[in-house]
Design a protein around this nucleic acid. Structure first.
Lengths: 207, 207, 207, 207
DNA sequence: AATGAATGAGCATTCATTCAT
DNA sequence: TATGAATGAATGCTCATTCAT
């Protein structure tokens, strides 16, 4: 990683700017996941990224901004991918299923990232409020509208509030992730989507 | 205040000691809720409790132990109350309903405590693991067994795993609390129990 | 300094608060004089005062505040003493002479303090402006009014502007101090007052 | 800009080098005057000079050397000009007058330079000592010898020490400059020379 | 000569914890 | 028990300087 063959040094150095930012973000994700945000030193992150302490500040204004960037980057990716994946799915059941699967696939594919999302990002009301205001509201609305659509076409019960049902599904998925993180056993997370939906969809289905 | 007549010193001191311990715990809950665990100074807690900084260490070994004690105290109370309340309820639906209600009533009645539980206690995997190992497992099992009972008597579907269903219900309730905390509007939390169960119970019911 | 005989421990501890503040101010004056404000570490000051680093912050909010306090303390003392000394002197020549003597006596009696005043306090326009606005204006006015008085009674020439003459005297005294500080030879500063006045008073005297 | 035809490279580069050195010195004077030496970053200077940070080090060994160079350059200019201007003036009064005028003209014509001289160069005893040893001694001697000459020809009092009188004049002029820098009002500095001399020359004149 | 990304030593300040009274 | 002054380890961030290109 540090040593490069001479012949490739130039192209490698050129790509370095973006790479280094990514390296810091990756290192920070790992470090935050292991020690927690407040217990992580900037020096730890720099060391994990293989750079000098001061270099961190060429790419981020503060330790706090690193945490925010981890969140922003992941959220942007997640929402972009989500929109693309859901673009052609109109059937409510299918949409909710895809949402749930994506949720667990995404977080289940990167344990460190998941830990940061489930644990570190919640360590302060300040951040949670920002999180709420940012991507979360949009995400929750995605679920809510699918449920509302299902009600419109008579697929789902009209006596449940779509917002509440959406929060419920989100909360259930969220709990699956948290449990997976804390579990000592290593099991695949995505299959839990089916388990949750088995109950949830029956619960909101019109009889 | 410092000097007591010998004859009464012991009992009085004991009562005072308990009171002061409670005062610190209460003050800490408020302070942690407002500023977050890592941003709270022991001096803040002492000031809020109306005592000197050093006195805190006569009752707690460290700042960390205060957080733990807040959790332990609340969890003990919650579980005790839960056991008492649920002692005579055997019907699964009713048990789950009572559990959900208690969950939201308890946290909905003390916003600061709720913030500490929903936010601060999750700021570190270390604590979450301890939390998991401690009361949470027991709590989750309470839900799980009610569901298993429901399956046994043919009330609930046998194709859902009780553990998963239990986590799902817990996650849903948990999300209701988190949303309530972060919401700018002040609404009563307990009624959300009904909303959640409306979906959940239908979702696990045998048809 | 650290060890006290038991019998005096209490009163010593009681006096400690004021003493410690003084100790820090004294230590800082010495350290600033030796290394310069910007090159002095708070740790240096603490060490020189025989206390722990953090203790400094129990008495001062910042390194900057220490410098300000050195100035304030000295200025207050100087002005108080000046007012007292000058209270009964009305004759302009005598007043100017006493002012000049006090100026050089005061700074000549504490070389470190003098260095801080002549060198460190001038290392920034910011501080010089504050200095200007604070005691300096008052001090200069003391000189100015003595000269103006002299003009009124026909002792001093009316074709010189009192403000300019005042600045001139101040500048001359100031230069004596600066030269004294930088000089390798150790000579008494106060006698320079006579030398300066020999020229100055003749310069402004009505013929 | 970087590539030059071989034939012209040397002279062109040499000129550019000198220009760039000047540019850095000019930029540094402005920056130091505004923010103070210790609060100025080398990056600020480079930016103000329109060059890259690293380029500064092709012309100066350190930040400190820049300050020294500013001083050296100005002092050399000042002394050269002084010698030229004073070459044909032998009459003591006239010499002192010309010295005072030059002093105030020079500093009064470049406020940033004046600030650096009056404020920044005095922020450390170390520098002041060097300053003393360098041009200042020579400058002071210029004044002193003029006064001594005046004594020899019976123009000035013999009971004043030429060195003290020289310091006094210097101190007075210096104070005029400092006051001018700190003043919020913008007034011409050179006329103050006359005001100062009006008093000073009378003060040293033989009666 | 010029660049500017990278370095890493350096430091003011905070705050959990201790302990003499 | 209670106090609160004192401690000193800990750390985010800055910035003069270097050096590969």
């Amino acid at each position: 990683m540090t040593m490069e063959r001479p012949g490739r040094a130039t192209s490698s150095a050129r790509a370095a700017a973006g790479d280094k930012r990514e390296a810091i973000l990756g290192a920070a994700t790992k470090v935050f996941a292991q020690r927690g945000y407040f217990n992580s030193k900037v020096a730890d992150i720099a060391a994990a990224a293989g750079i000098a302490d001061g270099t961190v500040y060429l790419y981020f204004k503060s330790k706090d901004e690193i945490l925010h960037s981890i969140f922003d980057r992941a959220m942007t990716r997640f929402i972009d991918e989500g929109k693309r994946e859901l673009a052609e799915i109109v059937e409510p059941d299918a949409r909710l299923r895809r949402i749930a699967e994506l949720h667990l696939e995404r977080l289940g594919s990167d344990r460190d990232m998941a830990i940061v999302f489930q644990v570190e990002l919640r360590g302060s009301t300040k951040f949670m409020e920002e999180f709420s205001a940012a991507g979360f509201a949009e995400y929750l609305d995605l679920i809510r509208s699918a449920i509302a659509d299902g009600q419109t076409i008579g697929l789902y019960r009209k006596d449940v509030k779509p917002v509440v049902a959406a929060k419920m599904l989100y909360g259930a998925l969220d709990e699956m992730v948290t449990n997976w993180i804390l579990s000592k056993r290593a099991y695949p997370l995505p299959p839990m989507a089916g388990e949750v939906l088995k109950i949830f969809l029956r619960g909101i289905r019109e009889t």
